[in-house]
Write a protein that binds this DNA or RNA. Structure first.
Length: 271
DNA sequence: CGTCAGGTAGCCA
DNA sequence: TGGCTACCTGAC
């Protein structure tokens, strides 16, 4: 019998499949998850997680199980729109990713569908990552900082124009540089990220929210923008700056969780 | 065939 | 500051 954790509320399915994280494979109700050089198996039955190949403490950190989700959901439950999303997806949590893996993954995501993003990241790992044997299969770890320094290899992963971003970023910042941002105020950290070539507000916020514990970060992509415009701004054209002001006032310090719920809700219930 | 996809930099008014 | 377009590439 594999090790287990009893936890509530938590939805492994929604947490993994809501688009914040790319390196997992689904087998029925169970998943193989990869992050950095780790590979583990996990599945949920009712309020219990069964897992293999990873420490329980890592799962608590990765899935933010130490966090009082009910409290956070009460904090962001400010209107009838998000209330529906919370009702439907309660248990969905942010994933605390590695900052380097997170930044690079979202650099690859620009103007690509989720399927394509996964292919590019997989190729990136195959080309630059460590080979790992696990349960008689070959897997690849995530490339470490400074390792993506061969332009020709980078061309071969199918990243298109994003390859140049990867190449530049690989030289400009490493994991410690990213972790150091945690000490800064949100706006300062965001400014440093957007100064990196290929990183705009959206990718900066993804990195801050999904890996650096800035829960007030609210990544604005085309889907969330359309949804906010339609449901919160009566269809008016809005600028990102207006959205950011409204969001931080309306949802407060856990706005990032609001983004997670609204985004997933609108993806599954297109308007 | 065109158009579009979970964005961004560069250019111009 | 604000609005537009090219950027690689594969999927429809």
């Amino acid at each position: 019998m594999s090790p287990r954790i009893k936890i509530y509320p938590f939805s492994l399915k929604n947490t993994l499949e809501c688009g914040q994280f790319f390196r997992f494979t689904k087998f029925g109700d169970s998943y193989i998850v990869q992050t950095l050089d780790k590979i583990f198996y996990i599945e949920q039955r009712n309020d219990t997680l069964y897992f293999e190949g990873v420490e329980e403490s890592f799962l608590f950190h990765f899935f933010r199980l130490e966090e009082d989700l009910d409290y956070i959901l009460r904090e962001i439950d400010r209107d009838n729109i998000i209330k529906k999303a919370i009702q439907e997806y309660r248990g969905m949590r942010l994933i605390r990713q590695d900052p380097w893996e997170c930044l690079i993954s979202f650099l690859c995501s620009q103007a690509k569908s989720i399927t394509q993003i996964r292919v590019v990241i997989e190729n990136l790992c195959k080309r630059f990552g460590k080979k790992i044997f696990w349960r008689n299969h070959i897997f690849y770890g995530f490339p470490e900082p400074q390792s993506m320094n061969d332009p020709l290899r980078l061309e071969s992963i199918g990243a298109g124009f994003r390859a140049n971003y990867l190449f530049q970023i690989n030289q400009c910042i490493d994991r410690n540089g990213l972790i150091a941002l945690k000490q800064l105020p949100y706006q300062d950290a965001k400014k440093i990220l957007t100064n990196l070539f290929g990183v705009g507000g959206k990718i900066a916020d993804c990195t801050l929210l999904y890996s650096l514990d800035f829960l007030q970060a609210f990544p604005i992509d085309t889907w969330i923008k359309k949804g906010l415009q339609k449901r919160y701004f009566r269809g008016e054209i809005i600028r990102n700056k207006e959205i950011e002001e409204f969001i931080s006032k309306h949802f407060g310090p856990y706005a990032g969780y609001a983004q997670l719920y609204l985004y997933h809700f609108w993806r599954n219930h297109p308007f």
